Amino acid sequence: MIDHAHDLAAVHKATERLLASVGTLDNASVNEPSRLPGWTRGHVLAHLARNAEALTNALEARPMYASDGARDADIEQGAARPVDVHLADLRESAAGLRAAAEAPADWSRTVELRNGVTDSASRIPFRRWIELELHHVDLGVGYELEDLPADFTEREIDFLTDRFDGNPGVPPTRITDGVRSWRTGREGEPEVTVTGAPAELVGWLAGRRDGSALTAEGGPLPAPPAL
């Protein structure tokens, strides 16, 4: 069950962790490569600020972005800014999202995201939490998948296995950390069983690790679709 109030509190904590990490950077390190191909740390930070604004738009029944081209241009234009400007932008955009989320509203309503995707408004805080946690790792500043909150890691595995469920490009797959298990991919047999630590599982599913630390039985390790 989605608890948007819990997730909003988690978003605030994740934002504070991110801001603390960014505060350790200087202008030169902001322009260094991130762990995302083709993006500097500045690109990641600009994306996070614009994503907060986009989710604010979704909550307030506006299109997330004017267009995909405008989204990409805003990220590119903002990437090379000084670190203090990035920090101010992150704080301001996060405050705007928080204000929109704290306004009286029907959290069961349906909101429109990008590319015609729709979701319950109650899931918007978790979507923002995902952005903050994974992109914090992408910065390559010492915050790793193993540092993610345990409840976030479990829910992100839930989220991604559900997202890939029924995908014809993913073989029938059972995923387990030795305690909990999930199922994803298309229906049928044989089923591949993938086993590993939670951080390794979420990294593999989210395209942040190659899965070399996982074990696969019943077939080769599947390649999750790009996010």
Rank of each mutant, 00 (worst) to 15 (best):
A58V: 07
G78S: 09
E60Y: 06
E154G: 12
P33T: 07
G96M: 02
E60T: 15
E189S: 15
Y143T: 13
L134R: 03
S181N: 05
A100Q: 07
H6V: 10
E32V: 03
E146N: 11
S93F: 08
L132K: 09
R186P: 00
A54C: 07
D74I: 08
A103I: 03
S21Y: 06
D138C: 13
T15A: 06
T195I: 12
V11Q: 08
A197C: 01
V117P: 00
I175D: 05
E76H: 14
A199N: 04
T161K: 10
T173I: 02
G96D: 02
V44L: 14
L25Q: 13
P37Q: 11
H4Y: 10
I75L: 05
V111S: 10
P172Q: 05
G196M: 01
R35E: 12
A66Q: 12
I75H: 02
A73T: 09
L132Y: 14
D3P: 01
S212K: 09
A5E: 13
P220T: 15
T176I: 09
R128C: 10
F152Q: 04
T15C: 05
I124M: 06
V179Q: 12
E187N: 11
H136D: 06
D106H: 06
A61N: 14
A73C: 02
D3G: 00
L36Y: 03
N57V: 00
P172R: 06
A9I: 06
A49F: 02
P222V: 02
E102G: 00
E92L: 14
A216F: 05
L148M: 11
S67G: 05
G219D: 09
A9M: 11
V30G: 07
V137W: 00
D119T: 15
A99L: 10
T118K: 13
R50F: 11
V202Q: 10
A95S: 15
N115P: 03
G185I: 10
F126I: 02
V22S: 04
D147A: 05
L221E: 03
S93H: 09
S34Y: 03
G219A: 10
I124F: 04
A101I: 04
E112H: 15
L18P: 01
L132F: 13
S108N: 14
R163W: 13
D165K: 08
P125W: 13
S120E: 11
S29P: 04
